[in-house]
Design a protein around this nucleic acid. Structure first.
Length: 199
DNA sequence: CATGTCAAGTTGTTAG
DNA sequence: CTAACAACTTGACATG
């Protein structure tokens, strides 16, 4: 139901708001029983429905079984709860929004923890690099993935960008090497448990 | 009284 | 085109 914003908005309000039990469906079960009031400082204030414990319990139970309702289910549930189908529909919409928000908050926490652990890991590796530099040892022995033999020092050099030891021989595609390294690093991190478990 | 919660209204998007 | 839905907003009410 889309109402143009430049139109005068109207809402449905019970005929006698004060006397009406707002948790009950209007007597004839029809919106015709409701009078309208303007939103722009209208005469009758909007009343807030508070669901009873039992109504909430049943709605939660239903939501647990299914996060959406087909029109028949909606009708049946509304009848059972003595609410209008629209109210049941709204409750489900809001409930889905709440659970999505909760999920997003959990994911946010997860990413924060992951970031923290990566920062810590990075810090440790940096200090390890510093330690090794301080030792001023000769070039490290690197085992070729192809021959399983130590590579001659002449085939090794330090990458100026990341300052890692790289090979310049054997026609190894650096992009492929990087991709496989990245994937395996993440996989290994997940195995070792440096990635916090979600939930 | 400030703040949080939640039912309900509005509007834009999308699938059928 | 329309119904269903998500995202956003509003306003009533509870609570500390």
């Amino acid at each position: 139901m889309a109402v143009s914003s430049n139109l005068k908005l109207t809402i449905s309000v019970p005929c006698s708001v004060r006397d009406l039990d707002i948790n009950q469906i209007p007597s004839a079960g029809s919106d015709d029983e409701w009078t309208t009031a303007t939103m722009d400082g209208g005469d009758v204030p909007r009343k807030k429905l508070r669901l009873s414990k039992e109504q909430s319990r049943l709605l939660e139970e239903s939501f647990g079984q299914n996060h959406t309702l087909n029109p028949k289910q909606k009708e049946a549930l509304a009848l059972q709860l003595k609410l209008r189908p629209r109210q049941v529909e709204v409750w489900f919409q809001n409930r889905r929004a709440r659970s999505k928000l909760k999920q997003t908050e959990m994911e946010c926490e997860y990413l924060k923890r992951w970031f923290g652990s990566l920062t810590e890991q990075n810090r440790r590796l940096q200090s390890e690099v510093e330690e090794l530099r301080a030792m001023k040892v000769g070039p490290p022995t690197v085992i070729s993935p192809h021959s399983c033999e130590p590579l001659p020092a002449s085939t090794l050099r330090t990458c100026p960008r990341c300052e890692r030891i790289t090979t310049i021989a054997h026609g190894v595609d650096p992009a492929k090497m990087l991709a496989s390294t990245t994937t395996s690093t993440i996989t290994a991190a997940a195995k070792v448990g440096s990635l916090p478990a979600l939930q």
